[in-house]
């Protein structure tokens, strides 16, 4: 069994985000980054399949030099090798460009399973998985909370609205995108981190993948990001903790709940 896990590196959850001077993205200069949370569940799921039997887990990330650190983390958690795709032409690409690039990575590898996050925590597009499946010509299911592999197929539970789960069965090879919470994600052990240093990490450019800049020319352009226009918003109460507490208690009394 050969599994590809796609990892995106995104700003750390607690990072304070500011709009960059060109107005179309955030200022990345001093930010801390981490593996997109949704993707950590995909990686954990792949590692569990590996633990339960025989599987090779390959992780891939597209991004600037900094993403190497996330790939090393993934290797430390137990992935077998990593592919880092880095190219200036990918900086302004869109989800389809990312999917085309990932498809080129997967082309000659014959993966049985491709696992990735439902959505990235920065862009929140939820597009790359289904796009990649289409480019690879394989079946997919988005937003899964459970998977059970059997010979040649996988049964998954997709999270639907109102607490229902859609159970579908897919033939291998296929692609699954993971919802958060589907497993308990492991940490890289010290031993794992030591071993990771010896694991292969290949760096590839677009040309290495047989692609050119025009292949990843974006169809989607983020023209501008900005703080949302504020509505009326909440009435903000101020004061010391005990003053605030007293005001809240009067409100709760006024609502007849105390």
């Amino acid at each position: 069994m050969k599994i590809l896990v796609c990892l995106k590196q995104v700003p750390h959850k607690d990072a304070r985000l500011e709009v960059a001077s060109d107005g179309s993205w955030i200022e990345e200069g001093n930010l801390k980054f981490e593996i997109n949370e949704y993707d950590t569940y995909a990686l954990e799921e792949a590692l569990r399949i590996k633990d339960a039997g025989d599987a090779e887990v390959v992780v891939v990330s597209i991004g600037p030099e900094r993403v190497v650190q996330s790939l090393r983390t993934a290797l430390g958690m137990g992935a077998d090798r990593a592919i880092h795709v880095c190219d200036d032409a990918l900086e302004k690409t869109d989800s389809l460009g990312v999917a085309k690039t990932l498809a080129a990575v997967a082309k000659d590898e014959e993966f049985d399973l491709v696992l990735m996050g439902l959505m990235s925590d920065d862009a929140n597009y939820a597009l790359t998985g289904p796009m990649l499946a289409e480019r690879l010509g394989i079946a997919h299911a988005a937003g899964i909370v459970k998977e059970t592999l059997s010979d040649g197929s996988v049964e998954v539970e997709r999270e639907l609205e109102g607490g229902s789960l859609g159970v579908v069965s897919l033939p291998l090879p296929c692609l699954l995108t993971t919802q958060t919470g589907m497993n308990e994600v492991r940490y890289a052990s010290l031993k794992g981190i030591m071993q990771a240093k010896k694991k292969p990490l290949d760096k590839k450019s677009l040309a290495d993948l047989g692609l050119t800049a025009s292949d990843v020319e974006p169809k989607v352009t983020v023209e501008k990001i900005y703080a949302p226009l504020k509505g009326e918003g909440a009435e903000i109460i101020e004061g010391s903790a005990s003053e605030v507490a007293d005001k809240l208690i009067s409100k709760i009394k006024e609502l007849g709940l105390l």
């Binding site: 501008k224 990001i225 900005y226 949302p228």
Partner: peptide
């Protein structure tokens, strides 16, 4: 659309 978990709004153009 919203981006960055609703921290920002974004204007997108599509080709």
């Amino acid at each position: 659309r919203r981006m960055f978990n609703a921290k920002f709004d974004a204007r997108l153009r599509l080709a």
